[in-house]
Design a binder for these strands. Structure first.
Lengths: 223, 223
DNA sequence: TTGCCCGGAATTGGATACAATGATGGGAGT
DNA sequence: ACTCCCATCATTGTATCCAATTCCGGGCAA
């Protein structure tokens, strides 16, 4: 049903290390600015340094951690500038992607997307924030899968969406953010069913930019 | 003078392996589809498997090699579709980047860009194709440096430009391709000196799309 | 006291040994 | 003769050991 974005591979030690580190980072287990020492992480994740090193390198290319001047990696300090940049890029790329996808959208896809919006709405009404997040993720996964044949674009978008998880999780806890998000999704469905690529692009850009504003507000209010 | 894109680091073994593999791939040393066996590469590059593996992983994220179904990497077979995708992405991203950069362009930058175009023109007139390539690279490096503070966008563009090297090197050997390219650069300078972001974006998109057509033609003629 | 230099500890980078997992080919059974 | 299965090989994935580099602090001299 949902997208093919995240298959929880934990067969290899590298995947185990990667999953461990990513969730540790996303859940804020490491304070911002903290240096990531390989041996320590290896102990925590129960593997040797080798898989930790490949996981770190992957996380760095995905932007979850930052290389330090000389050597090693650290947890990035929250940076409004970088968050802005990623949201702006998402707006451009997901807008472009939706324009590409528009001509190929079928009724079945529209129905699937509508279903996710309804489920998210229901979850929002009953206050199950985690479920809202889940169905919104399914919504975007479905859209992204439409351009799965553009492998570069596909994985760029997937990476950036992973990156903003950090900020979105907080945002959706605010009712306003979740409402904005659902409203945007409805507009996207509408634009897709009309089928105009330019309209789709514009609607998606606006949706992402709205998400950016919500994320900004959330961060600024939190301190 | 030129951009900060490529500093030939060969201090670490990983960089040595990376440079070796990249130039081997770009110069067509490995036939398309060939599986890359770590131990063999290690022998050729004069390092152990460890740095080879990090280099491979980096090259894969940059798109120079592709992961195989089960394990290992291989040289990608030339794919018009993928080439198209990368050029299309470049058009979108470099167009966006130029629109961002437009308001910050100074007279000094315009003069530098003009200088590169003149040098490339001179090289073209005297048939020094390698120099044409060099000055065109300097031109794009200079543009890319304008948005160096947007680190994501910067490195995305840098990666994709590295990727299309494979195709551009051939293209520029054809006079038509080089002439198109220079003409595009002149238009970019013109748009930048007018300063309208939207115009800059459109001109850059057209320039990249023209490069794509030249690359397509070159590939299709070559067999 | 302050600044500089040197030495050792901490940490990463690289090599090698070992384990696990697909790939391959040959032999037995039908 | 053909097919299927098992043994063996080739190759990647992981652990560990060693080397190189950076970081940090203490001591010495001005």
């Amino acid at each position: 049903m949902a997208g093919a974005t995240e298959n929880s591979n934990e067969h290899t030690a590298t995947d185990k290390a990667y999953e461990y580190l990513k969730s540790a980072i996303l859940s804020g287990l490491f304070p911002p600015g903290e240096r990531l020492v390989e041996e320590r992480l290896a102990g925590e994740a129960g593997v040797s340094r080798t898989p930790i090193r490949s996981a770190l390198s992957r996380l760095a290319t995905e932007g979850f951690i930052k290389p330090m001047e000389k050597r090693g990696y650290c947890i990035p300090r929250d940076s409004l500038e970088e968050m802005d940049e990623v949201f702006d890029l998402r707006a451009v790329l997901e807008g472009y992607a939706l324009a590409l996808a528009a001509p190929m959208v079928t009724g079945a896809v529209i129905r699937e997307l509508t279903e996710y919006v309804n489920l998210a709405q229901k979850a929002l009404d009953t206050g199950e924030n985690h479920q809202v997040f889940r169905w919104n993720t399914a919504f975007h996964d479905t859209l992204n899968d439409l351009i799965a044949d553009k492998t570069r674009l596909y994985s760029l978008i997937a990476d950036m969406r992973k990156y903003v998880l950090r900020y979105r999780k907080d945002t959706l806890h605010y009712i306003r953010g979740a409402e904005h998000s659902l409203e945007g999704h409805r507009r996207i469905i509408h634009a897709l069913s009309l089928g105009y690529p330019d309209l789709c692009e514009r609607v998606m850009r606006e949706h992402v930019m709205e998400a950016k504003e919500d994320a900004r507000r959330t961060i600024l209010e939190n301190r």
